[in-house]
Design a protein around this nucleic acid. Structure first.
Lengths: 155, 155
DNA sequence: TATTGTTATACTCTATAACTATA
DNA sequence: TATAGTTATAGAGTATAACAATA
C-alpha cells in the first residue's frame, strides 16, 4: 500500500507534488482526456461536445428559447448565437420566432437532428465505455453523482 | 427513487435528457465550475491553472527539463515555450541550459517562485474547500481517486 | 427598465507542422 | 535518425461590453 503511494504520485516518472492532492488538477486532466477521446470518437460527424449538449437539451424541450437552453448548459448568450447558427446550417435544428415572445427564438430538432443524435449516442456510449474501462459501473455512477454535486456549487 | 430522478435531471428547470447520464458532460461542467472559481480565487496573482501546475512540478523536481515537465502535465512542447517564458519573465522560474544536454533547459523555481507557490496554495485550498463544500473529505478523496483512474486511461 | 438575441472582440487552451541545434 | 526547444498558425472555448428590438 505504502509502496504504491509513491507510484501514484508519479506522472510519466515525474512527481506531481502538491498538485496530486488537488481535485481541480485532476478534474482538469480527466476532462481533457475525455474531450480528446470524444473528438476522436466523433470524427466525421461534425458534432462537438457543446453541439451535442445543445441538441440533447433542445430534443428534450422542443420549442425552448435560445437563452434558456444556453443558461441550462452554462453557455453565454453571446456564444450561443454562432453555435445555434452552426446547427441550423447543418440542418439539425430549426430556429423560429417564439409565438409568445417576438424577441426570442424557439428551437426544435429536425428529423435529421434526431437521427444525428441517435448516431452520436452510439459513438458516445462506446467512447465512454472506453475511457471508463478502468471503472466499474457503480464507480462510474458514483463519479457522476459526485460531479453533479460539484456543479451544483456554481454561482 | 423514480420521483427524485425527475428532479436530478433538471438544470435551471430544464431537463438535460440523456446528457445527464453522460460522465463526459458532468466532467466538463464540473471542470468549468472549478476553473471559474479558481480564476476568481487567483485574481491579482497572475497565476493560472497551468502556470501553477508547472510551478508545482518544477518545485518538486528542480532541474527538470522543459519537455519532461510538459509531458508529465500533458502540455505539448510547442505550448510550453510561452508558458515558461511567462514564468521566467515573472521572475518565478529560472531557465538554464542543462549541464548534461545542451539542447535542453533545466528549470528551477526561484525564491520568489517558492513564495508565490505558498501564497497560491493558501488561496487554492480555500477555493477547493469552497467548491467542494457539498462533499465530505472522504467523498473528495474518492472523487480524486476516480479521476486519477480516468486520467490513467489516456494514450 | 429588463430581457432576447446580436455583434465585436479578446484571451486562453490546445493542436499541428516545419524549423534549428544538438545528441 | 531522434530529441529539445522554437516559431507560426489555427481552431475552439469562454468572457465582456455595447447595441437593437421587444417586453
Amino acid at each position: 500500500m505504502v509502496v504504491e503511494a509513491q507510484v501514484e504520485d508519479l506522472a510519466d516518472g515525474v512527481p506531481l507534488g502538491v498538485l496530486d492532492e488537488l481535485a481541480g488538477y485532476h478534474l482538469r486532466r480527466a476532462s481533457h482526456v475525455m474531450s480528446t477521446d470524444f473528438s476522436r470518437a466523433m470524427a466525421g460527424t461534425g458534432i462537438r461536445q457543446v453541439l451535442f449538449a445543445i441538441l440533447s437539451i433542445v430534443a428534450n424541450s422542443p420549442g425552448i428559447n435560445q437563452g434558456a437552453a444556453g443558461r441550462a448548459l452554462a453557455i453565454q448568450r453571446a456564444n450561443m448565437v454562432s453555435l445555434i447558427t452552426e446547427l441550423v446550417e447543418a440542418g439539425l435544428i430549426e430556429r423560429r420566432t417564439a409565438p409568445d415572445d417576438r424577441r426570442a427564438f424557439a428551437l426544435t430538432v429536425t428529423p435529421a437532428g434526431t437521427e444525428k443524435i441517435a448516431e452520436c449516442l452510439h459513438r458516445i456510449r462506446a467512447h465512454e465505455d472506453r475511457v471508463f474501462s478502468g471503472l466499474s459501473l457503480a464507480e462510474r455512477a458514483a463519479l457522476i453523482e459526485l460531479l453533479r454535486r460539484v456543479e451544483a456549487n456554481a454561482e
